[in-house]
Simulated scan of single mutants.
Amino acid sequence: MIVFDLQCEPLGHRFEGWFGSSADYEDQRARGLVTCPSCGAGQVIKAVMAPNVGRKGNQMPAPVPKPEAAPVAMANPPLPAEAVAMLKAVAAMQAEAIKSSTWVGKNFAEDARAMHYGEKDAAPIHGKATAQEARELLDEGVAVMPLLVPVVPPEEAN
């Protein structure tokens, strides 16, 4: 079998054709059997192509040298001491603020909305809400904010 890159002359569509030999291609073309699969044109010529010349069975490709290893950065480098100190300070401030707040768990969005609309007495609360619930609360004008440090629910605390 032989593969030719072919091209229709009217529009320049390129495609492959498989033939038993070069003579088979010429014979089929002369009889109008070779047509463009895109537009159906019968004016088909061989396109310029790079031949695939295989190696002899006893020839092995030359080994490709491996590039020198590039320097690798640590995926999770340790935080600088100043950042650790700031995070500890934020966690301590949040823990102090939560002491005067009530855990409402998954009822956070419902309770926050009820307080906003005056259906419940206003009080500081904290709990869980989905991102969608938080967006809806903000759209309604309910003042909410995420806690910066994760909080362990009271029922899960040791």
Rank of each mutant, 00 (worst) to 15 (best):
Y25H: 13
V151T: 11
L6H: 00
W18K: 12
M145T: 07
D27I: 13
E133A: 13
G105R: 03
G127Y: 00
V48W: 09
Q132N: 13
S22D: 11
G12V: 11
S38N: 13
R29M: 09
A83R: 05
P80D: 06
E140A: 15
H126P: 10
L147F: 10
W18P: 06
L137K: 14
R135F: 04
T102V: 14
A92M: 00
R31D: 03
P78Y: 01
Y117W: 08
A47D: 06
N107E: 15
Q94L: 12
E110F: 08
N52T: 13
N52V: 15
G57F: 00
V144H: 04
E68N: 12
A112W: 12
K128V: 05
V53F: 01
A131L: 15
F108R: 00
P65C: 02
P80A: 06
L87P: 02
F15I: 04
A69C: 08
M86P: 03
P63G: 03
P78C: 08
P146G: 14
A83D: 12
S101T: 07
V142R: 10
P51F: 06
M49E: 14
E140N: 14
R14Q: 03
P61T: 04
I125W: 05
A70F: 02
M86K: 14
K106R: 11
D24N: 09
P51D: 04
L6K: 01
Q59P: 08
M49Q: 15
F19R: 06
A97Y: 08
S101H: 00
F15G: 00
Q7Y: 01
E26I: 07
A122M: 00
I125H: 03
K46S: 00
V3R: 15
A114S: 12
V104W: 03
E16G: 11
K120M: 15
G105V: 02
P124D: 01
K56C: 01
K88W: 04
A73S: 15
Q59C: 06
A30D: 05
P63L: 05
M60S: 06
A85Y: 04
E96A: 14
L138M: 15
K46L: 02
V142N: 14
E26H: 06
P71M: 03
F19G: 11
D24P: 03
